[in-house]
Simulated assay, not measured.
Amino acid sequence: MPRMTDGFRSWKFLAAGVAVLTLGAAGTAHADDIPGGTTKPPADGTTGGGADKNGNLSAGASSIKFSYPGGNSGGGGKKGNLAPIDPNWKPPACWYEPAFTSKELKDFVDKDGGGDVGIHESWFGKGLWTDHYRDGKPADNFDLHSPKNSSAEGYKDYNEGKDGRFWRGVAPDDSDPKSWDCGRIMFWVDGGKIPDDPNAPTAKMLAEYAYDKVKVPETKVELKPAAKSTVNLPTWAWLDKGTFKEVKVRAELPNTPLWAETTAKPKSLHLEPGTDDAETFPASGECAINEDGSIGTPYKKGSSKEEPPCGITYLRATNGEPYQLKASVTWEISWVGSDDDDKHGLPNGTFETTQDMNVQEVQSINR
């Protein structure tokens, strides 16, 4: 029977939607992460060589650093994440990134550090770490999709004296089935190199991850009349150029030359009146952005019967319950980065808000 001081390992195993208990070497059986339970959110930083704020190595805590060169930091008003226009597009499920130098790993182990040695495998207890990273004993990877990576050779004295870092898998959501693509336990990469692995980080991957960090202002359009329209008279709609500026997020992966900047630029406003008894201007409901960055045209006195460049005419009054006017801005996505990857492939995004619209029968003129 193994000594309890050797520690235990836990494996998070997903098969046909069922959590399976797996016996760990040099320890006890341990159930972890039942599918459908709470997942670990990504963190914007770590405390040291890949450890989370509690000192444990966490596959959900990335060391990617974010900054906001424009449009995303501070400011008043509500903000939210973009919804990709392509429903099949998703940011990367997992990747590998540098964590420890040889000394940092040794210090981590000597302090009885524990946690995720791989996305779906955790080691708690000094013995498991010293066996593999100090004493050269092989250990199993845990990658359902790549049997050839089922075994990892051990290391002598944490590769002391060598230039490089140990890399680890990271998954913002380890319940995502695609997170199993990064099933290698922490492995060594020589200094100045990126691992030869399909899930090694790239500038495009950073651009995709930065997409998920873009925050845009809520789409509350200016209206005239503001909250109560009149049957058969146009309601003008517009967005001020000072509010809807481009938003830029920069992502950098420490201890690599990799970086990317993802930019979201407002492109058009789409109006849905909330009833079939209405006409939109233009007929498509899609109001393009103007050269100065604004959308639509503010109402001017005396224009109440004119067709607005962007707006709605309601044909039937509300009866106690307001119409729900949906306004969504389409944001055009682009990116630049540290390498020559294909600069295409990131879908445009939208952000939608809903406003109450009351419509009266009495004819009146906007003032």
Score class of each variant (00 low, 15 high):
G127H: 12
P198R: 00
N319W: 15
L144T: 12
W123D: 08
P282N: 01
C310K: 00
A43R: 04
T280M: 06
K343Q: 06
Q363S: 15
C94V: 11
H145K: 08
P257E: 11
V359G: 04
G24L: 06
H30A: 08
F187H: 01
E121Y: 08
G48D: 07
V221Q: 02
S338H: 03
G36D: 10
D176H: 11
K90E: 14
K224Q: 13
T350K: 05
L325A: 05
S304G: 12
P172R: 00
D135Y: 15
G45R: 06
Y211W: 06
F281S: 00
P42A: 03
E279Y: 08
E352W: 08
A251G: 02
G127S: 11
I289C: 04
N88Q: 10
P309Y: 08
G191W: 13
A327W: 02
T22W: 14
A207W: 08
G49Q: 01
D190S: 04
D292W: 14
K224C: 10
K126I: 15
S268Q: 10
T275H: 09
A237P: 02
L253W: 01
P92Q: 02
L14P: 11
F8C: 02
D292M: 08
I34Y: 07
G48T: 04
G45K: 07
Y158F: 07
T318W: 09
A288Q: 09
T130E: 10
G349W: 13
S58K: 02
G17Y: 10
G48Q: 02
P35V: 09
P84C: 06
K228L: 07
N255E: 14
E208G: 11
V359W: 04
N255P: 08
T202F: 12
Y299Q: 01
P225K: 00
F108E: 02
G118Y: 13
K53S: 13
K137H: 05
I365L: 09
A200N: 06
Y299S: 02
V247C: 02
T297L: 07
D44G: 12
Y211S: 03
C287V: 01
T256C: 15
W95C: 05
I85P: 12
D277P: 15
P35S: 06
P138R: 00
L82E: 07
T243E: 11
P198C: 07
E261M: 03
A31T: 11
K137Y: 13
L57W: 12
G74S: 03
P298M: 03
T262Y: 05
D86A: 08
S67F: 12
M357I: 11
S151H: 10
G293L: 10
A152Q: 06
H344L: 15
T130A: 12
V231M: 01
D196M: 08
V20N: 02
E286C: 11
T38Q: 07
G337P: 03
R3W: 09
A210L: 05
I289W: 04
F187G: 02
I194Y: 05
Y155R: 01
Y158H: 00
G183E: 02
